[in-house]
């Protein structure tokens, strides 16, 4: 029974939402609209702190943008329309998740590409090492007569003085 407490705590932490900088006075009265605002805000970069979303950032600009997002939601815009509005002003750089299009193909395809290369290299290495094990050359060859004589001479030399 006592063992379950850490497990429950770990599960609670795993599913806990990170604390956002969204202030209570910004909340929309409609929880559905507020949730949409969170979904949008989580994916918009705060241009002041750059690696935080506008929902995570305490920068005044982030607050202005959160209010703007909520205002446009209340005006009846779709999530995509709100995002397009912000992108038109600040560029695609504000999207924390880059769009999938020609100029970002390298970004999206490079990781799977390098993973594939690594898999291929690992496979080739594995296959070659298996092949080498199977080869008769891998076994030690018996010494030739000339090698035997040379070895005997060297050993004799050692004993001599």
């Amino acid at each position: 029974m006592a063992l379950r407490i850490p497990l429950v705590l770990a599960l609670m932490l795993a599913f806990a939402a990170p604390a956002a900088a969204v202030q209570p006075d910004e909340f929309l009265p409609d929880p559905v609209q507020e949730q949409r605002a969170r979904d949008i805000g989580r994916n918009l970069r705060c241009l002041v702190c750059q690696n935080e979303s506008i929902d995570d950032s305490d920068a005044p600009l982030a607050r202005d943008l959160r209010l703007l997002v909520r205002e446009r939601i209340q005006q009846g815009e779709s999530n995509q329309e709100v995002i397009d509005f912000v992108v038109a002003r600040y560029g695609e750089y504000v999207l924390l998740k880059p769009p999938f299009k020609a100029s970002t193909y390298v970004l999206w395809f490079a990781p799977p590409f390098f993973f594939f290369i690594a898999l291929l290299a690992a496979f080739l290495y594995y296959r070659r090492s298996r092949a080498e094990e199977a080869l008769p050359e891998a076994q030690p060859q018996p010494l030739t007569d000339a090698e035997r004589r040379r070895l005997a001479a060297l050993l004799d030399n050692d004993k001599a003085p």
Partner: peptide, 12 residues
């Protein structure tokens, strides 16, 4: 309200 600044893409 800084709304005009946002329209210009001002971030600082």
């Amino acid at each position: 309200t800084t709304r005009v600044a946002i329209d210009w893409g001002v971030y600082g």
